[in-house]
Computed example of a mutant assay.
Amino acid sequence: MGTDYQRAREELGRRLRELRVEGPLGRLTGTQLAQRLGWQQSKVSKLENGRQTPTDDDLRAWAEATGQPAVFDELRARLKGFESQIRSWRRQLAAGHRPVQETWNALVSDSHALHVWENSIICGLLQTADYARHVFEGHAELQRSPRDAEEAVRARMRRQEWLYRPGRRLNVVMWEGALRAQVCPPEVLAAQLDRLLGVVGMNTVHLGIVPMDAPLSLSPANAFWVIDERLVVVEDWHAELWLDDAETIALYRRVWDTFADAAVFGTDAQQVIARVRRSIKV
């Protein structure tokens, strides 16, 4: 993906390879190390090439199997350094919104199941082009970034092809307030809600709406995406957080499940959307 996160993972992989090749026990092949650890050889390869994130237990076992148990603290520090990656908007948007959208296209393209919570705007995978354009223009003004809304819109629309690929599943829950947010002119919002009404029955989309008057056990804060149970992306005003440690992913899934429990789906969701749609004066 070309991200800071991926580069850090690749650097850790190079360090693991160095420990395997140059350890006090002599050079070990990947197969020999896998046998010592009781792993598949493919796991050793993935860790060394930055295609899989190790756990603390993986790192401890690696250090011990290569005869260097004292290096575990260093490896663990490296891991903790990129388990929470802060990707500042200032850096990401230096060249405009289109490159950010292309990064997301690559991320989503390889994914099969998404769990999304949106509390303030319509989920990007369900946005119309006109709605997305106003969102990009507003954020470009806020971040004082290059104005490339048209290119960003085209990139976001290409990502929506994912919804029509077999084996994909978008599980999205949105706060009713996101349907009402006037981030665009009324006629654009009305068309956007018409689009939502049309996706309720799609096989690849499981859309839930949390009504404004639904009882909640958590406050409807921070939008986030859980991607294939391997990565969480959380949005804030200054940055995105890319989080991949197992405990954090499990926490966000519990949050998503809590909001899903408060949501309505199917025809009930359509009724909420239709009620909001009728309230818009076009």
Rank of each mutant, 00 (worst) to 15 (best):
Y164C: 13
Y164F: 14
A155N: 02
P220E: 03
W89K: 09
E141M: 04
Q52I: 09
R156D: 08
L37I: 00
V276Q: 01
W237V: 15
L12K: 03
F265N: 01
G81S: 12
D261H: 09
Q192W: 10
W242L: 14
G167Q: 09
V226E: 01
W175I: 03
A269K: 01
E118D: 13
E118Y: 02
C123A: 15
Q192H: 02
I249W: 05
V183S: 10
P220R: 00
Q6W: 11
L47R: 02
G38V: 05
C123M: 11
D268P: 00
R20L: 04
G26Y: 02
V282L: 07
D58Q: 04
V232Q: 03
M157Y: 07
L79N: 08
S120V: 13
G266H: 13
M174I: 14
G67Y: 07
E137I: 12
S88M: 10
V282A: 06
I86Q: 12
R27I: 05
S120M: 13
A94I: 11
L16W: 04
W162F: 12
G38Y: 05
A155E: 03
Q143G: 01
E18Y: 11
L179V: 06
A274E: 14
L125G: 04
L243K: 01
E141W: 06
Q101I: 04
H238F: 09
L163I: 11
I280C: 06
V232Y: 03
P54V: 10
E176W: 04
P186I: 08
E141D: 10
V135M: 14
W104Y: 13
G67N: 06
Q143W: 11
E102L: 12
V282N: 06
R159W: 05
A95I: 03
D261E: 15
R156S: 05
A214E: 06
G30M: 09
E240P: 00
E11V: 13
V188M: 09
R158D: 15
R278C: 00
V255Y: 11
T29K: 00
A221H: 13
F259Y: 15
A239G: 00
E141A: 13
R20G: 07
Q92F: 00
A113M: 10
L19E: 04
E83D: 13
F259D: 06
W237H: 11
G23A: 08
T66D: 06
D244P: 04
V108H: 01
L107P: 01
T267V: 13
V183L: 14
A149L: 07
E141C: 06
R147F: 15
E240A: 10
A129S: 11
A140Q: 15
I122R: 02
A94M: 10
M174D: 08
E187G: 00
V172S: 08
G198A: 12
R98D: 09
G13T: 08
V172Y: 09
A8T: 01
P69I: 07
A269S: 03
L251V: 07
G177P: 05
A65K: 03
L37K: 05
V233D: 02
N49S: 14
V188R: 01
P220Y: 03
S120N: 10
E151W: 01
V234M: 08
E187I: 07
G266V: 15
V255F: 09
Y5G: 08
W62M: 10
I280T: 04
